[in-house]
Amino acid sequence: MTDFSLQWIVFLAWSVLSIIVLTVFYMMYRQSRRDPSTMTYDVINKKRFRFFYGTIVFLLIAFFAAVSGAPYAERETPEVIIGVKSKMFLFEMTQDTVGTNQLVEFRITTEDVTHGFGIYDSTGTILGQVQAMPKYTNRLRIRFPEPGTYSILCLEYCGTLHHQMRSTITVR
């Protein structure tokens, strides 16, 4: 499947930032042991606002990138529509085979409590998910990039057998 999933990129970004944080904290600790800097608070405040505006720019870019990647927009018409009825502790799907790269829309409902509908590829990586909430129909659109067997796992705690609530979908 995709070698670099979004999850890996996220983890990498988080690790790099965390290492930076730990290094900065350690440097400040060392600094205070040697000679408390002669820097005055004004100088520091100037840096603070530089940091502030820099981060705002960064976050704004991230914000707009995120908005365009959000899974809510529904511009194209789906090629396949699959109804999913979830209930403790199984999923009933109107169809469990689809074609590669078809735009599939799942319409997910629940008959009892809230469940989650998470799609995993054969390596165990999540492709996407949505909640199944009583009295609502949630639509999840997805394209399966490669043929194979994909797993559906319940991703919202729904009772004692929650972790056994699963299904599969075959992509040809």
Partner: peptide, 19 residues
């Protein structure tokens, strides 16, 4: 906090919510 802000990004949450 960094991990939280990353997960509060909608397309990331699409894959990492409830993990």
């Amino acid at each position: 906090g960094i991990a939280a802000v990353i997960d509060a990004t909608i397309p990331v949450n699409f894959k990492m919510h409830n993990t």
